[in-house]
Design a protein around this nucleic acid. Structure first.
Lengths: 101, 101
DNA sequence: TCACAGCATAACGGCATCGTGATACTGACG
DNA sequence: CGTCAGTATCACGATGCCGTTATGCTGTGA
């Protein structure tokens, strides 16, 4: 469906994935994410907004800072599963190649 | 990382997802996929090529027909998990909304 | 109240990718 | 050999998204 494709699209961007990875350990404020990723502040803000709209991340203002945290840690399982599948796929491709040569 | 994001990108397209869904039951030739999805032949060919390059699908010519099949059915688990997470996320968003109202 | 740090947003150029229509390739079959 | 169904590819216009630069907004603290 439409919605599912859009959900996958959330994870289809390297920098966005990097931002998300940053939040694996817990909540961070924007500047901390900027420092950890090395991305520009504007870009991090943009990706965090997207992640928030997608519901992957939750926004929590605290004083003059704004903290973000993953709303459902299960996403990391999804990411892990995708990594696993990706590896298996690569292996299969190599095997198929070896069968020809 | 780079590769993982690209892998997710494979599933970030409604029509491509529809093509893939078509192959859940087994292998089909291009025309069959075209009929099942209602998409144009050129478009189906394009998506099938992408899926093949990504390793999600395998190509098997048979006479004048070309059959495609999912190379690792685990992908459907990934899709299922994403669907589940998507639903859970939507629920959380509604709960958060209800908590405010 | 002013200045500054932290964060968000606007505007813009650039690039990738989507879908279409037309065309090329390739087996099967008469 | 010629034709046709099945499949792949090309060229193209259109759309969307990425990243940057510059600017706006909001709290905090002096």
């Amino acid at each position: 469906m439409e919605a599912l494709a859009e959900y996958f699209k959330v994870f289809s961007e390297p920098n966005r994935l990097a931002v998300l990875e940053t939040l694996r350990g817990g909540s961070l404020n924007v500047t901390a994410v900027v420092d950890k990723t090395g991305l520009s502040q504007a870009l991090v803000s943009k990706h965090l907004k997207l992640l928030t709209i997608a519901g992957v991340v939750k926004r929590r203002p605290e004083g003059s800072l704004v903290f973000y945290e993953v709303s459902d840690k299960t996403v990391f399982k999804l990411i892990g599963q995708a990594e696993k599948l990706l590896l298996a796929t690569r292996r299969q491709q190599l095997d198929a190649l070896a069968a020809i040569l």
